[in-house]
Amino acid sequence: MSIIVWIVIGGLAGWIANMLMKTDGSLVKNVVTGVVGALVGGFVMSFFGAAGFTGFNLWSFVVALVGSVILIAVINVLTGKRA
């Protein structure tokens, strides 16, 4: 899997997750949130028996988006911020 795929899907997933969770962020924050979210989402999906991040497709975007939302929610709980 190419690093460019991770950056593109991570950037889109991080951007959408930031909009859903009503947080703000720069392009770099969106990409980092999306890439780390893809890792978190892959772990969560494999825990439930589903495939994780599989490449440049819709399923990988959904996995990254779910992981990004989980990541932002956990960070908000730890820092005491509210959406």
Score class of each variant (00 low, 15 high):
Ile7Val: 13
Met45Ile: 06
Ala38Tyr: 07
Val31Gly: 01
Ile16His: 03
Phe47Thr: 15
Gly55Gln: 04
Thr33Pro: 12
Trp6Ile: 07
Val28Gly: 09
Val28Thr: 12
Ser60Gly: 11
Thr23Glu: 14
Leu39Gly: 15
Gly49Met: 13
Phe43Tyr: 15
Val36Thr: 14
Gly42Ile: 00
Leu65Lys: 01
Gly67Val: 00
Val44Ala: 15
Ile72Phe: 12
Val8Tyr: 03
Gly55Ala: 00
Gly80Gln: 11
Val66Arg: 06
Phe56Trp: 03
Val69Gly: 06
Ile72Cys: 04
Leu39Tyr: 14
Val66Trp: 06
Gly10Trp: 02
Ile7Lys: 01
Lys29Val: 10
Asn18Arg: 13
Ile9Thr: 09
Val44Thr: 14
Leu39Lys: 11
Ile72Met: 13
Val66Met: 13
Phe43Ile: 15
Ile70Gln: 09
Gly41Glu: 08
Phe61Cys: 03
Ala64Ser: 05
Gly49Asp: 10
Trp59Asp: 14
Ala50Thr: 09
Lys81Asp: 10
Thr23Pro: 00
Gly52Ser: 09
Gly80Cys: 03
Gly52Ala: 03
Asn18Ala: 13
Thr79Glu: 12
Ser2Leu: 01
Ala64Cys: 07
Gly41Lys: 07
Asn30Trp: 05
Val31Tyr: 11
Phe61Gln: 01
Trp6Met: 07
Thr79Asn: 06
Val69Pro: 01
Gly52Arg: 11
Ile16Asn: 00
Lys81Gln: 05
Ile72Trp: 08
Asn57Pro: 06
Asp24Cys: 10
Ala17His: 00
Asn57Ser: 01
Asp24Gly: 12
Met1Asp: 08
Ile75Gly: 00
Gly67Leu: 02
Val66Cys: 14
Ser60Asn: 08
Ile9Lys: 01
Met1Gln: 11
Gly67Arg: 01
Leu71Ser: 03
Gly34His: 10
Val77Ser: 06
Asn30Gly: 05
Val36Ser: 12
Val69Met: 11
Val69Ser: 04
Leu58Ala: 13
Phe47Gln: 15
Leu12Phe: 09
Gly37Ser: 07
Gly11Leu: 05
Ser26Tyr: 12
Gly34Asn: 04
Ala50Val: 05
Gly14Lys: 05
Ala51Asp: 14
Gly55Pro: 10
Val44Arg: 12
Ile3Met: 12
Ile4Cys: 05
